[in-house]
Every structure is written in structure tokens, then in C-alpha cells.
Lab assay of single mutants.
Amino acid sequence: MQRVNMIMAESPGLITICLLGYLLSAECTVFLDHENANKILNRPKRYNSGKLEEFVQGNLERECMEEKCSFEEAREVFENTERTTEFWKQYVDGDQCESNPCLNGGSCKDDINSYECWCPFGFEGKNCELDVTCNIKNGRCEQFCKNSADNKVVCSCTEGYRLAENQKSCEPAVPFPCGRVSVSQTSKLTRAETVFPDVDYVNSTEAETILDNITQSTQSFNDFTRVVGGEDAKPGQFPWQVVLNGKVDAFCGGSIVNEKWIVTAAHCVETGVKITVVAGEHNIEETEHTEQKRNVIRIIPHHNYNAAINKYNHDIALLELDEPLVLNSYVTPICIADKEYTNIFLKFGSGYVSGWGRVFHKGRSALVLQYLRVPLVDRATCLRSTKFTIYNNMFCAGFHEGGRDSCQGDSGGPHVTEVEGTSFLTGIISWGEECAMKGKYGIYTKVSRYVNWIKEKTKLT
């Protein structure tokens, strides 16, 4: 034993070699072989497995989906700052455009905790909710729209109204504003409101030439003092309507412009014939205590009207009353817009006519005020429907199939267009061939041609 100890002390290297040989010859039971080890760690190889990531292109799944990435790591994937920024906006807080917040056709661009709407022409605001041009839906104005110097929408209202708090709607500024039905039992019968379409306001006024200088022999019209197929109006439903009495009662109609003036057809009036105007009328054979009678003290036909040349060209006249009318729910003026808007309103496509005229061709006159909704007829169809001249200051309205029309005794009465609950004068009943005849239409004086003249002559002093 002493000898062994001496050998170990003198030859430590020998001992180490012996131990190493023993270990190498022993069977290893701690580690699995290569094949079995792979069965336990069965993990798919990654895209760049075996390579240094710093030297390969980034992978979106590896960089940002398996674990949260930084902007720089995302930049490695896209290799483009702009594309990385677009991805980053949604990656950080989701897609803010998912709810489609942009209105009126706006395009949404996502941002971090926010979004941006790219608005089409005519709109602005956070969600493109603000109209900035009158060309689109009248700028959301209830009545009139004008573009300011910086191309912003400025709404306005006709006389007797003021802008509401929203700067879009119009509200009454006087007790009985024009064009409004205020009798409670008839307010439910107000005709369907007309909503502004998209309009090209630059070209809204037709490029028409008034044929002022045409000389033409007097034409022989049949029954051209021209509501057939209409309905009984309720008291106060058309408070701007008046009836004219002269040699015979209810020979023509008219509309209240203001307390002192009536507008009617020029062919209705004769110099030297006494005319009485009755406002607030409903049943011409009954006294309903809503009527107001006034005498006409002055007749002003349009300066281009000449019955000797043509009885229905420039067929418009103004009547001055001896005493002002007292405005109330049964006696209310009709609204008159400017030339541009009167023309736009007419193009809405349908209007209402009213009167006490004959209820059928050569038949009896109506006792109760009649009204009828009539569609506008395109000019080409209008011209083809008659052998008589249709001037540019006239328009056609009615039904091709016949059966409904204005008729004798309705002449001078109103053709009105309702705009968001307020009625505007767009025409004056003038003439036609018979009444409600198939293929024939009622012919009306186009008020847009005469609004400046009306307003100039009827100013209240």
C-alpha cells in the first residue's frame, strides 16, 4: 500500500490518463441519441435557420407576430419608411378606419389613436360632414345658397324668414311668412316636400332668348283662358290664391305678392273693366268669414305684352289694390325667389296649380277651390304637342294621358313649387288646347323671366 501511494504521488498524470480511459469505455446513459432527441424537440425550422439574422431580410411573422416588435424591426421587413409607417399605425392600436367614419364618399386613412378623412370636392370637416359648395344638395341650405369668396357655403332665406341657429334652416321672422300653410287642420295635408338634388348652379339658368321682337298675326285659340281631375282644397291650404270678379264672377285667378299687390295673367284683364279681388276665398257660393274683398285701382301688364300681336306672350300683369290686405292664416303671400332659384325650383319637376275653373272641358265651374299636382314636361315634348308657338318664356306641365289639367277660369292662378315646406311661385296658368285632352298640356308663363320686374313694381313704400 505504501508503494502504491508513492507511485500516485510521483505520477499524477498517469492516474488522470487511467481515469479518462475508464470513462470513455463506459456506456453513456444520461444523453439520448440524435434521433430520439429530435422526437422530443420537434420544432419547425425557421426561415433563416442556421444563418445569422443580421444578414437576412426581415420576416413579418418572425419579427412582429411571434413577439412584439419595434418600429426598427418592422422597418427591416418593409425596407421602406412609408410602408412601415402605414403598417405601424394599425399594428400599434388597430384600424381606426374600420367603422368607416368618413361621410359623403370620403376616404379614410388610419393613424395612431386617430384617423384622417380625405374629402371629395365640396366637403370638409373631420368626417367630411361639412358642405362647402352650393353645387351639392344646395349646400344643405333649406332655401338659398351662395358661395363666399373663400368658396364656403353661405345660406340665406327669402323675405319674412331668418336663418336658424344651425345656419342652414329657415324659420319665420314674421307672423305670416310667405308660402307657408298655417291653418292647423290643413298642415297635415301639406304636399310632399321637395329635397334639393345635386345641381350645376353655374349652368342652372337656361341660355334662352326671349323672342321679344317676333311679330306674329293673332292666333285663334280655343278655350285658351284655361282644375280638371283635381281635388277639393281645404280652407287655408292655398292662402296665396285669390279669385278675380268682373263682368262675371271667378273669371280668373291670381296670387298675393304682398298686402297691396296681386300677380295674374295679362290676358285676364281689360282696361276700363272694374275688377274686384277676393282673398281668403274657399267656396265661392258661401260666406265663410275668411274672405277679404278689395278693388283694383291700377293694372300693370308687362311692358312687352301686346294682345294685338299675341294674347299669351309675356302673359303676366300686376294688380294694385285700393287697401292693403290683412295677412292671416287664410290670406298669405306666395314666396318669389330670384331668377336663378325660381328656375331651379321649376326644374324640380312638379308643381301645384289651383283655381275655381271648370271641372271638365266646357263644363261647370268649381264651387270649392280645386288643386292638382302636375309634372313638368320637357321642352321637346311640349313643342311636338301643339302647332302653336311655345315661346321661351312659357313652359308645359300636365299629363300625356289627359284627364287632369287646369281649365277655363283658372287662368292667372299660381303654379307653385314647394321647397322644404315653403311654396314659391314658378308659373302662372296661361293657356292650353281644350282641357285635359290626351297628348295636350297646360301652358304656363315662366315666372323666372319676370321676377325682377315683379319685385321692382310691387315694392311697398
Rank of each mutant, 00 (worst) to 15 (best):
R449E: 15
G106Y: 04
Y47Q: 06
S70P: 09
C396M: 03
E10R: 02
S365C: 07
V92L: 08
A436M: 14
K168P: 02
V326E: 13
C435Y: 02
Y330L: 08
T342R: 00
T264H: 00
L367H: 13
G427L: 01
C108R: 02
V153N: 09
K188A: 06
E82M: 15
T190M: 04
K109D: 11
K387V: 11
E53W: 04
F345E: 02
S217Y: 06
D93Q: 15
V359A: 10
A337Y: 01
E323N: 13
E456T: 09
K459T: 15
R298C: 02
Y201M: 11
A337C: 02
C407E: 03
V242K: 00
N42P: 10
N222T: 04
D378Q: 14
F399G: 10
P101Y: 10
V331R: 01
W261E: 00
E61T: 15
T461H: 15
R162V: 08
L367G: 13
L244I: 04
G413Y: 15
T85E: 07
N127C: 09
V416Q: 10
E76Q: 14
Q2G: 10
N135S: 11
I344Y: 11
D338F: 02
K137C: 13
G236P: 04
E320H: 02
V269G: 03
R62S: 10
H302V: 01
N245L: 06
G179W: 01
T194G: 10
Y305K: 02
D93L: 12
S156Q: 06
Y330M: 11
G125T: 04
D223C: 11
N203T: 06
A26G: 05
V154G: 04
Y450H: 03
N304W: 10
K293C: 04
T264A: 07
K188W: 09
A436R: 12
L130W: 04
V353S: 14
L163R: 03
K457Q: 06
C335L: 00
C435H: 05
N313Y: 08
R358M: 11
V92G: 13
F388G: 03
Y201W: 06
R298W: 02
E124A: 11
V154E: 05
E433F: 14
A233D: 05
R75G: 15
N328L: 00
N151D: 10
C335T: 01
V359M: 15
E142N: 03
C28L: 00
C382I: 03
V195G: 12
I40F: 08
C28Q: 02
S350Q: 14
N306L: 05
K457W: 05
K260W: 04
E281T: 11
A192I: 06
G230K: 07
Q90V: 06
K234D: 12
G253I: 12
A26T: 12
A307C: 05
V227Y: 05
D338E: 07
A380E: 08
I428D: 01
L376S: 09
C145G: 02
Y115A: 09
G439C: 13
T85V: 07
G122M: 09
P333C: 01
N313H: 09
S220R: 03
R358A: 14
F196A: 05
W261D: 00
V4A: 12
I344E: 12
A164D: 08
N393A: 09
T458I: 06
K126N: 09
I390C: 10
A149E: 11
S182A: 11
R191E: 14
R358F: 14
E66Q: 09
N42C: 09
T381D: 15
F345A: 08
L19Y: 04
E53T: 10
G105V: 03
K68S: 07
V4T: 11
K293N: 09
F78R: 15
A207N: 11
C97H: 03
C157Y: 00
T81N: 06
D249V: 08
V243Q: 11
R191P: 14
A233H: 04
L20C: 04
L244R: 00
M437K: 11
P44E: 10
V154K: 11
Y371N: 15
G413V: 14
K293F: 11
N5M: 09
H34K: 06
G357K: 13
H361D: 14
H302A: 03
W453Y: 01
